[in-house]
Design a protein around this nucleic acid. Sequence first.
DNA 1: AAGGCGGGGGCCATTACTTCA
DNA 2: CATGAAGTAATGGCCCCCGCC
Length: 325
Amino acid sequence: MAAGGEIRGSSSVTALLRNEKLPCSSSEVLESLLWIPKPSSVLHLGPKSLVNFSENVNGGDTKGTLFFQSHDKEDNGYADFDGCLNPPGKKRRLLASQVLFLEKNFDVENKLEPERKLQLAKELGLQPRQVAIWFQNRRARFKSQRLEKEYDALKANYDKLKADYDNLFTEKEALKDQVLLLEDKLLLKTVVELEPQKTIMDAETKTTLSNLLPMVVACCKQEDASSAKSDVFDYASDSPHYYNNTDGNHSSLMEPADCSQVSDFSQDEEDNNPIIRNLLPPPPYFLKLEEDCYYNNDPPPATTPINSCNFGFSVEDHPLWSWPF
DNA sequence: AAGGCGGGGGCCATTACTTCA
DNA sequence: CATGAAGTAATGGCCCCCGCC
């Protein structure tokens, strides 16, 4: 058999096992490939090797191996068996049947004891050195395949964890948006509650107060967060529009005072809904706001009405806050 | 008993060769 | 027909173990 008649080793075995078309049409090789080792042939068949090649390949023919019967004639292992092999010194590929036999032995035990190596070499008509090299290379391939499988498993695990993280992150962002929306609604309700306590509030005063309210709520929230340290309000630090001063200190106007009727949420709602409960600022701040508004120690400017409540901020500083009613 | 030495085997990186598209 | 890629047999170096002296 010419060199071109040989088929590739392990890849051919893989193709055989997958019932793929083999890259060789040599009748001799195909004949050898027709041999399918019986499961019972594995183990305990040969005196030394774990899988008996002669019995499997030649149906128990004791004359020797199918391809290397004349091996004894030339101990270099590269004898010209009816022209099937390459000349000595040239690297040649193992036949598919030999590779199959070696694979079966490798599946049983991937290490090669000296006696087993000699037995395999004898049955396959190969040099013991060739059998050892084949096992060594096969172990290397096995290791690389194992590493590849482990890498795939780790990557799949990583991808799953990353997907979970992304989902959680998206959910967190959605909850943040929901909290912001609820807070805006709360601001509106708070302002509604404030108005009946004013005796007189002209349009300018309303505008000024509305501009200040975000800062007031933010300060209340900060006060609350400093005591509760709740992660729910982490977004406050990310929402600079709620703060007028950049150093995070809330206004000195924020002093506790009595304001038990700020919210129009029922007490049950506040108690049962953690979001609402956390969103609601401590009640005292708003009345104190009123007090500071109307009883400021500093005399009001001449241009400022005695009942105004601009807190020293100009209207232009808060142009984006719209009075809700 | 301790140490040097040589042989054998495994692992690893690399080379050389073959086969195929 | 030439060529590059892929697969694999084979080589060489290094290390470890073991038996012998």
